[in-house]
Amino acid sequence: MAGLLDVKNIETYYDLVYAIRGASFSVEEGSITAILGNNGAGKSTILKTVMGLIEDQPDKGSIEFDGVPIQHQDTDAIVRKGIAYVPEGREIFKELTVHEHLLMGAYTRKDRSGIKEDIETVFQYFPVLRARVNQWAGTLSGGEQQMLAIGRALMLKPRLLILDEPSLGLSPILVREIFAIIKEINKSGTTILLVEQNANMALSISSTGLILENGRFVMKGRSEDLREDKDVKEFYLGIKSETSAKGYQRWKRKKAWR
């Protein structure tokens, strides 16, 4: 089952913290894959490991993109292979304009006319950025900054777009809007790997879901199935099956995943 991205049995240390304890997954070409999990489960660490942002990691295991191993490579080399990454908390350049951001997004590309076209495409996805084109990114609102971060990643024309919590700190309407756009981006042919706290939203647009707990995957499956799964419902979707007369839940199906 060779997917576009194959992660096999990686283990990652964050300084002395054993954060990822043997995780394997694969992202099918053309799919939207969502990784769900609690705070501190290691979701972002997995993405950072894939992007080569944690020095000397993964400690063990292999990461293959399109059949080529990419672990222990420099971030810029990984990016040049066609993986774009939208980090948690946006990581924009505060004192560069929106236009300069989009140019930076296309830093590894050489085709000038293609870059111009793609800036237009980004503006079609996010019309609000067109109005702010010469404004410093630091002066944008949180939602606009998130759009800018996604737009910057799209400028790479990536084969795989990795998003780390695109809904972080956004209003519910904006979350819905951004997820609709993510779906659209996927339809235009970009494979997407998504990490989310907002399980409901993530499972509604993704085709495959993975659940991470304490650095290990505890469940994977088609998103429709996961949404119907009783454990997932209780842990992540907040749907309770049984309540007492006083209104609180009397028992839990499980204390933890294992």
């Binding site: 992007m51 971030t75 990454y85 980090p87 560069l96 300069e100 140019l103 930076m104 590894t108």
Partner: peptide, 23 residues
Amino acid sequence: SKLGLAMKATQQNSVAARIVGVR
């Protein structure tokens, strides 16, 4: 220039610069 822009970007946020492919 593109290199000049990359220099400014590196100063403002070196992690972000790395993830758009700047060495």
